[in-house]
Computed example of a mutant assay.
Amino acid sequence: MNSSPLPGMLCNYDLFQKSLMMIKEAVQGERNDELFYDYLISVAPNEEAKNIIESIRNDERRHNQIFRMIYKNFTGENIQSVDEPFQKPSSYLDGLKKALKGELSAVVKYRQIKEGLPLGCYQDQVFNILTDELRHASFYNYLITMDKC
Score class of each variant (00 low, 15 high):
66 I>K: 07
58 N>C: 08
19 S>W: 00
22 M>F: 06
47 E>L: 09
52 I>V: 15
8 G>S: 00
61 R>H: 12
31 R>A: 13
16 F>A: 02
23 I>H: 05
22 M>E: 13
59 D>E: 15
59 D>P: 03
39 Y>G: 06
46 N>V: 09
34 E>D: 13
43 V>G: 03
37 Y>H: 01
60 E>A: 01
25 E>L: 14
8 G>D: 05
27 V>F: 05
43 V>W: 01
30 E>F: 12
63 H>Y: 05
62 R>W: 11
42 S>F: 00
22 M>K: 14
6 L>N: 13
48 E>Q: 14
5 P>A: 01
63 H>W: 06
56 I>G: 03
26 A>F: 11
64 N>S: 12
42 S>V: 02
25 E>F: 09
28 Q>I: 10
60 E>D: 06
21 M>C: 06
60 E>G: 04
7 P>H: 08
26 A>K: 11
36 F>Y: 04
33 D>R: 10
17 Q>D: 07
31 R>N: 13
44 A>K: 01
33 D>P: 04
62 R>Q: 15
58 N>M: 14
51 N>L: 02
47 E>I: 07
55 S>A: 14
60 E>Y: 02
8 G>M: 02
27 V>W: 02
55 S>H: 04
67 F>Q: 07
42 S>K: 05
63 H>K: 09
38 D>F: 10
7 P>G: 04
53 I>W: 00
25 E>P: 01
65 Q>E: 15
14 D>W: 08
43 V>I: 14
9 M>N: 14
58 N>F: 10
49 A>N: 06
18 K>W: 04
20 L>C: 00
37 Y>G: 11
26 A>M: 09
28 Q>W: 03
18 K>G: 04
64 N>W: 04
38 D>W: 07
33 D>Q: 14
67 F>E: 05
60 E>F: 02
12 N>A: 07
57 R>G: 07
41 I>D: 07
44 A>S: 10
59 D>H: 09
52 I>C: 08
34 E>I: 09
14 D>T: 09
26 A>H: 13
11 C>F: 02
63 H>N: 12
22 M>C: 06
53 I>L: 15
38 D>V: 08
67 F>D: 00
12 N>I: 11
11 C>V: 09
42 S>P: 06
26 A>Q: 11
11 C>S: 10
59 D>R: 09
39 Y>T: 07
64 N>P: 10
15 L>R: 13
29 G>I: 11
23 I>T: 08
19 S>K: 02
23 I>Y: 04
34 E>W: 11
62 R>I: 15
30 E>I: 14
42 S>N: 01
35 L>K: 15
54 E>S: 15
45 P>N: 10
61 R>L: 15
30 E>W: 13
5 P>M: 01
66 I>S: 06
28 Q>G: 06
48 E>N: 12
29 G>C: 07
39 Y>Q: 07
25 E>A: 13
16 F>E: 00
21 M>N: 13
19 S>D: 01
18 K>A: 12
39 Y>V: 03
20 L>Y: 02
48 E>V: 15
